[in-house]
Amino acid sequence: MLFRLKIFFIKLGSWEYWPMWVVYFPLAFYYVYLAIKARSLFFFSASNPSIETGGMFFESKWSIFKLMPCHYYPSTILVEPQDDYTIIEAKLIAAKIHFPIIAKPDRGERGWRVKKLNHLQALIDYKTQTPVPFLIQSYVDYPVELSIFYYRHPKSVKGKVTSVTYKKLLSVVGDGVTSIDGLIRKNNRAFLQYLRLKKESLINLNEILPFGEERILVPYGNHVLGTMFINFNHIIDDALTTSIDTISKNIEGFYFGRFDLRCASIDDLKEGKNFAILELNGAGAEPAHIYHPGFSFIEAQKVLMQHFKMLFDAAKANQQKGVPYMSYQSYKQTKQLEKAFKLQVQQA
């Protein structure tokens, strides 16, 4: 009871943990206004013509990667449910992918079933528990992980970077006395992940870390999994904008969305080298810097509203160039596929 009560008050006290429908409820009225202007509730689909639903929902990550030059992203393969281990092994060898690896469903959001796998048995277990197509990527160990939001009006020559977020992976720091279990319980952000960390049994919770030693608890930067999002908009300059603009223009039909990437350094990224795109999210993406601890809820609403307007502008301009908005029938069919997908996962 006390455990659940503590979680409740942690989430209540920081809006970054509130349910998505609560965060977006105030914006629903503005979205309806934009939909009336566009004469379509589904105008978002035209924002990125080459991505399913514009990237709003149920889009294929594999299809998005195939839009990019291959040197932009880690070596990646698609595993189909019918693939046996001989086929998977052959794909891994052909792509020169070695352990550790990152596995994640081809269609999914907010960190669902993203796993770092360190050996073959872990991959076998993951395959057994995942009845849907999933991706395997080479693990990228560049030290800096960022989310970068990009927008370019379809009639403009140059785009702009509107948000940069530094991702601080969930971790604890030892004091030479307290166990990892105790350190997690003292850290609100880590405490929210306690049950999941305990269930996965990947960390020895009884271990006592030496004073000052940091231990990463979750090795990938996802807010739902405990990563701290830090506002890094101060690094936006002409060099970064030019670099991201160049990258984006090499992705067919992409105008609005967020890169999740790792790089050797910010300076290297500004020079367009030593980086790897882990994911590209389209119309459904958020400018992640709003989740910086202490960021004003009202200010976040303003930022999201600005990005809704950019989404509308991109979609409207593409529609004027001949890109149709998603029809209600198409929307309904896609939602039915998404529902069937989720049901298949639940029954596994």
Results as ranks from 00 to 15, higher is better:
M68V: 03
E80G: 07
L92C: 02
P69L: 09
A46C: 00
L67C: 06
P100S: 00
D83N: 12
Q82R: 12
S60Y: 06
P74E: 13
A90H: 04
I97M: 06
G54R: 11
S45I: 04
Y72N: 01
A103K: 05
F58T: 06
A95P: 00
G55D: 02
G54I: 05
P69K: 07
E52N: 00
I93R: 14
K91L: 11
V32D: 14
S45N: 05
F58V: 01
R39E: 14
L41R: 13
Q82D: 15
I101E: 02
M68G: 05
L34T: 02
F99R: 05
G55R: 00
F99S: 10
P100W: 04
A95C: 04
A35Q: 11
I64D: 02
A103Q: 02
E59T: 12
A46M: 06
T53M: 07
D83F: 08
S45G: 07
W62A: 06
K61V: 01
F43W: 01
N48L: 04
T53R: 03
I36K: 15
H98W: 01
Y73F: 15
L67N: 03
I77C: 04
D83W: 03
F43A: 07
I88C: 00
Y33T: 15
I64V: 15
H98A: 13
P69V: 11
I97C: 10
Y85T: 11
F99H: 03
F44V: 04
I36Q: 09
A103W: 11
I102Q: 00
P49M: 11
L67Q: 09
H98V: 07
F58G: 02
G54A: 14
S60C: 07
L34N: 09
K66G: 03
L34G: 06
P69M: 13
Y31F: 13
P69E: 13
V32K: 12
E52Q: 03
V79H: 11
T76C: 00
Y33E: 14
E80S: 12
L67F: 04
Q82L: 10
L41T: 05
M56W: 09
T53H: 06
I64G: 01
M56I: 04
I77R: 08
I36N: 06
I97F: 10
L34Q: 08
K96F: 10
I36L: 15
P100G: 02
Y85V: 11
S63M: 05
N48S: 11
I64T: 11
E59C: 02
H71P: 06
P49W: 10
I51Q: 05
A38M: 07
I101W: 02
Y85C: 10
I93A: 13
P74S: 01
S50G: 07
M56H: 10
S45Q: 01
T76P: 00
K37C: 09
V79Q: 08
I36Y: 08
S45L: 02
K66I: 04
I102F: 09
F65N: 04
R39S: 12
I77S: 00
T53K: 02
I51R: 03
